[in-house]
């Protein structure tokens, strides 16, 4: 139970940040793809800069989790097509709907109920991937 409170709190922190940073705003995504502001690049860049440092600290200091387990970051399997084609398909949707799978939930909490259409069809898209998975190049 205590573990779940931890996950919930981290989710709340991430949710508040995604909303207040405006990374959950359709307008900021459009502006980013138009290269008309540094804002989104600053968010992703600074998160990445610190993220790299954090992960290096975990690896070099061999940090254990709060629950005394080893911290494992699963490596993505090698490949090109799935990442490039799948990534491009996601990019098309990200720019069109202006939300990725995190902000989707944040916007729901913020009271933008039309986002439920996006989420419902994202479930359909995920399902379609499962159906066609074996026919796609990976």
């Amino acid at each position: 139970m205590k573990k779940y409170l931890t996950y919930l709190s981290i989710g709340i922190l991430i949710g508040i940040t995604l909303f207040k940073s405006e990374a959950a705003s359709w307008f900021r995504i459009y502006e980013m793809f138009k290269f008309q502001s540094f804002h989104m690049y600053g968010i992703i860049g600074s998160a990445l800069f610190l993220g790299i440092i954090f992960i290096q600290i975990i690896k070099r200091k061999n940090l254990k989790s709060f629950y005394k387990e080893a911290i494992i970051i699963p490596a993505k399997e090698k490949g090109f097509y799935r990442y490039f084609i799948g990534g491009s398909i996601f990019g098309l949707g990200w720019a069109l709907a202006g939300a990725c799978p995190g902000p989707m939930y944040v916007l729901l909490g913020a009271g933008f109920f039309n986002i439920l259409v996006v989420t419902a069809f994202a479930l359909l898209g995920t399902y379609l991937y499962g159906v066609f998975k074996n026919k796609l190049p990976h």
């Binding site: 990534g87 398909i89 069109l96 939300a99 996006v118 069809f121 359909l124 995920t126």
Partner: peptide
């Protein structure tokens, strides 16, 4: 948009 996000 949703389908592209979910599938992609």
């Amino acid at each position: 948009g949703g389908i592209l996000i979910g599938f992609g």
